[in-house]
Write a protein that binds this DNA or RNA. Structure first.
Length: 496
RNA sequence: GGUCGGUUGGCCGAGAGGCUAGGCAAAGCUCUGCAAAAGCUUCUACGGCAGUUCGAAUCUGCCACCGACCUCCA
């Protein structure tokens, strides 16, 4: 079906993509924890896998894309009193935990919409799968790789490895070294081994989010929900599991152990990890407190920003670097992205205006266009190389511009090649990269009519060489944030 | 300390033994009342030192920086 290759974190190399059950593809992405606003690094990951989802669909696969919402309490301090993130935040804001969940879920969806993310086909919640999580915990106990201790249940890493498994293989960790690193941590007395991790955690009475279980009242451990939901909706083995690099250990490592422990087989064929996002050279993270929220880019309301940047500008900036590379956001980079995006969108507009004109086909030109079109697929097949795709689209844009400037007609390539140019350029720009033309979309009819009038008046004054009036209109509009663009074919405007 | 990654032109960023991405900036040009916008053209870089090779930014070794992860995190 395709020549797609994917860099698999598990094997540390690019592998040919072969779905288990083509044309169906199962894709799982670790979703947000909805106890605060989704931050931009998070958004980068979701945009990266939106690209993966879009391209798989573009290739004709039938994709089930599962991205969870983590709305159950996660431990913040497993060894200590067992604090619950949802609960902590609830006390601060004096809200019910599910109110917080609702608030930030709505906010997350709003960000997804702005950044033009396609919705996943299933968006399951952790609290909606408590029963299944209890079941998997029980199964792990039955299979001899988990044990109950003082109302909690832990995964038994040693027992798991004794069965011939290798906890740590995804992230390249060595168990002995890990244990050495835990030596100083306290409160490990419930565990047989410091690297054992919680599947089910006993809740103290003041916990608001807790459920009954065979081990008493409590709540699920950090890593269990993803194992449960991926298995439930994608099967015991599925194609692609995605997430940020920092989830490799321990989260994804634990997921593998839970799945293998419960189901007896390797759960994931291809593990994909996105790299981290920096701002001005520094890692953007919740813990460092330097994160800019996606909405703040759009409103421009942040001391580190000079002005608002549209969601599409940010998305374009992300697409300019490979998902597996670190990405450093700077003001200069945002400004560059804004211009680069506009260039591609202009070419798309020009392309729509081109008329095919039968004439002698120039074999070389025909071949050039065809090769550039084919290259779009070739580069995307190479581990979703969006930056290289953009480079190819720019080359196509140059060809489109040349036609546009040559009387808006295409006369030196075949009709078939012209059709290929149109479907390729639009298909990759809009459908695969998920970019859209915000300037065109923002217009409304009333404003358009007013602007037509203003442009007409200015045109009249220009014809009578009344430069004072024409320049006054131009400057006043500029002050209002509207830019006048004169060209051979007339005057247009753009809201800046 | 352990594990993994990185160092590419003024800036950003792909690539990965010979075919010298692309964007932004800059310069020149076209258009133009001026300007802006738009477009065309030009601009041969890969941390240092050795080595392998006919040939290295790309492979190997050493060194120097930078960063990520190692029970908050995408």
């Amino acid at each position: 079906m395709s020549d797609l290759t994917i860099y698999n974190t598990l094997s540390r190399q690019k592998e040919k993509f072969e779905p288990i059950n083509p044309p169906y593809v199962g894709l799982y992405c670790c979703g947000p924890t909805v106890y605060s606003d989704v931050h931009l690094g998070n958004t980068r990951t979701f945009i990266s896998f939106d690209l993966v989802y879009r391209y798989l669909k573009f290739l004709g696969y039938k994709v089930r894309y599962v991205r969870n919402i983590t709305d159950a309490g996660h431990l913040t301090n497993e060894a200590g009193e067992g604090k619950n993130r949802m609960e902590d935040q609830a006390k601060l804001e004096k809200l019910e935990p599910m109110e917080i969940v609702q608030k930030y879920t709505v906010g997350f969806h709003e960000v997804c919409r702005l950044f033009n993310l396609l919705p996943p086909t299933i968006e399951p919640t952790a609290t909606g799968h408590i029963v299944e999580q209890i079941e998997m915990t029980q199964k792990l106990i039955d299979n001899g790789v988990a044990y109950a201790s003082n109302g909690s249940v832990y995964f038994d890493v040693n027992a798991y490895n004794a069965k011939g498994n290798n906890y740590g293989k995804l992230s390249g960790r060595n168990i002995d070294e890990l244990i050495a690193g835990y030596r100083d941590l306290d409160g490990q007395d419930e565990k047989r081994n410091p690297i054992d991790f919680a599947l089910w955690k006993k809740a103290s009475p003041e916990h608001i989010m807790q459920w009954n279980s065979p081990w008493g009242s409590g709540f699920p451990g950090w890593h269990l929900e993803c194992s449960v939901m991926s298995t439930k909706y994608l099967g015991k083995q599925f194609d692609i599991h995605a997430g940020g690099m920092d989830l490799k250990f321990p989260h994804h490592e634990c997921e593998i152990a839970q799945n293998v422990g419960a189901c007896g087989n390797e759960p994931v064929r291809y593990w994909m990890h996105t790299n981290m996002l920096n701002f001005n050279g520094q890692k953007m993270s919740k813990s460092l407190g330097n994160s800019i929220l996606p909405m703040q880019f759009i409103t421009g309301e942040h001391p580190l920003l000079d002005k608002p940047y549209s969601a599409m500008t940010v998305r374009f900036l992300f697409m300019q670097s490979h998902y597996s590379s670190e990405l450093d956001i700077t003001i200069k980079g945002l400004q560059d992205a804004e211009k680069g995006l506009r260039k591609l969108m202009n070419a798309a507009k020009y392309l729509a205006e081109l008329k095919f004109d039968t004439a002698a086909s120039d074999e070389q030109q025909d071949k050039l266009i065809q090769e550039l079109c084919n290259e779009c697929k070739t580069v995307m097949d190479d581990d979703f190389n969006a930056p290289k795709l953009l480079a190819t689209l720019y080359e196509l844009a140059t060809q489109i511009n040349i036609y546009y400037n040559d009387g808006k007609k295409v006369s030196n390539i075949s009709k078939a090649t012209f059709n290929q140019l149109q479907t390729t350029y639009n298909g990759y720009l809009f459908d695969v990269l998920g970019l859209s033309d915000e300037a065109a979309a923002g217009n409304n009819e009333a404003l358009d009519k007013v602007m037509q009038l203003v442009i007409d008046i200015r045109k009249q004054s220009r014809e009578t060489k009344d430069w004072t009036t024409s320049d006054k209109i131009r400057d006043a509009l500029k002050n209002a944030g509207i830019e006048i663009k004169d060209s051979k074919d007339g005057t247009t405007y753009e809201i800046g």
